[in-house]
Design a protein around this nucleic acid. Sequence first.
DNA 1: ATGACGTTGGAGCG
DNA 2: CGCTCCAACGTCAT
Length: 521
Amino acid sequence: MIGIHWFRFGLRMHDNPALLSAVNKCTSLLNVYILNPDVELNQDRVSDNRLWFLLDTLRCLDVKLREKGSQLHVCVGQPDHVITQLVKSTKATLLTYERQTEPHNVVRDEKVSSGMKEMGVQVDAVLGHTLFDPDKLLKLNGGSPSLAMKGFQTLVAKAGAPPKPQDAPADKLPPPPQLTLENSDELKLFKEVPELSDFKEHGYDIVNKTTSFKAGEDQAIETMEAFLAQKKRVATFEKPQTSPTSLEPDTTALSPYMSNGSLSCRLFYWGLMEAYKGRSHSQPPVSLEGQLLWREMAHLIGYSTPNFGRMEGNPVCRQIPWRTADDKDAKQMLDKWENGQIGFPAIDAVMNQLRTEGWMHHLARHLTACFLTRGDLWITWEAGRDVFEKYLLDADWHINNFSWHWLSCSAFFHQYFRCYSPVVFFKKTDPTGAYIRKHLPVLHKMPAKYIYEPWECPVANQQTAGCVLGKDYPKPPFNHSTVSKENMNKMKAAFDASKKAAAAAKEQKAGEPKAKKAKKN
DNA sequence: ATGACGTTGGAGCG
DNA sequence: CGCTCCAACGTCAT
């Protein structure tokens, strides 16, 4: 049988059930990755760092495939068109891929698989990106996801242990089939995995790559094993106790690998169980196991909630009258926020780390997400979500949307009177401002006393520090305490309004059957 | 109904 | 560093 294995997530050889399915069934197998020019090669949606990380991951994958007598073919084009052309060219009768659950990916895959059906091509869509089968979890829970961690833990307990990771293919892979394709405007096939600079026409260039993260499956496993070898650190890990201002990640920093599947979450889960063995250890939700459960819960909610990627029409999302980019002031603030020029050093440092590294600590994300939405700027979480999605190496549709719901008090978390302060929050873990100095070098010489509020620094000292406010670094556009208090009042109003709306909807629902009956009669 | 709790707040006290 | 209070959310167990 001639087959095509379509890599999307699951960019690895280990624990890759979809790839194994292809290898076991095929005498000839084409391994392909498709770059969609509207998605992966779109500067508005994917930063240079993120595309570089993807391409370098693909390069590592290609090396491994070549060691097994195969290789990775990288194409540019619309996925349904590319797959159709590849099937025609290779005369393949099997298409395999790892199943994805993001709504846009579900739509794409439905389109592709219905096309394959018409061509008489068998499609194997295999699970591998999460610990559990989302449909199985939904069924166990009566058809709906769990919106709180406690309930989710109960659900997971019912589901039993997640599958053990599978080994990488032991033998040589089936050789690639003959491929005769003419490059066209709609389809470009690369002989080798492309570099960032191959996409200059899309605005990408290797000189814009600034992240120090290293890509690929080997790096992922090495990082994981190095962390899991620290048995005490693993056993005592409590997420809220880790530091957002540490100069090196204080957490595992495995998320970039987990999000594109160069690391299997099942490999990590079972490695973690092994590291826990014979030790008392921290528990979910704060433990490392808990972090995997949060990921799983976000994926299940994102998969099963209509319109989870926006506020309107989203049944779990509180409707809040946020400002959008249509508001001129909001748009200006949004741009400053994205580019680290808002005037609060902690916020700007976090956003600079996001743009240069493509990763920040979870609590740093909390601080800046709270600031953008309910805390200070009162801007829609959807706008912040898009900025994070563009720059984060670990961008994960479900988790990103879930977290923005959480931080904006739109769902899952409701204590809007608990608000992060851009001046105070980082002082706890970084009183001297080492993190600020690293990610916001213009404040490098600012005295520790003023590092989080340089506008309080006497002008003479600003000059000595080489950072004059309003010239070298912006003055903050408002007073945080005043604005955050005003915003809390707005939140109170929005909560009241949504309670009222919920009560009205309930009443209407109660009245509905009667109305229908009345109509019938 | 009521109270405890919720992965990760801040301010002010000792 | 640990405690209480702030003004007060939704969820869940009792």
